[in-house]
């Protein structure tokens, strides 16, 4: 099977999630949210969302409760660093593999 079907005559790309693959696999530690500490979950209304604001990879949802897409989270820890209530802790991936 050749590539004629694609019809491109130059390098024309269209969007796709996970262009670099499942970048979650790059991670050595995983952010885990303690919703008892997380402001929007505690107040049950939109608030804070600083982790969402600062996540370089846009893998945190602006929802109640806040959720992290672990398929693509690169484990950079920025969310944990910026969280004012220390609701996010980084847990070594090895602890999930067993």
């Amino acid at each position: 099977m050749g590539t004629r079907e694609c019809k491109h005559i130059c390098g024309e790309s269209s969007q796709g999630i996970g262009e670099a693959g499942r970048t979650g696999e790059w991670r050595s530690a995983r952010p885990v949210i303690d919703h008892d500490k997380c402001t929007p979950a505690r107040q049950n209304k939109p608030a804070c969302f600083l982790c969402w604001l600062y996540c370089p990879d846009a893998v945190i949802s602006k929802t109640i409760p806040v959720q992290i897409n672990l398929e693509y989270c690169k484990g950079c820890e920025i969310c944990a660093q910026v969280c004012p209530t220390h609701a996010i802790t980084m847990v070594n991936e090895e602890e999930f593999s067993s």
Partner: peptide
């Protein structure tokens, strides 16, 4: 407008 799973380093501020 920037989708997850891109190629930049973890913690890259350019992406942010």
């Amino acid at each position: 407008y920037v989708l997850p799973g891109n190629r930049l380093c973890p913690g890259c501020s350019v992406s942010l």
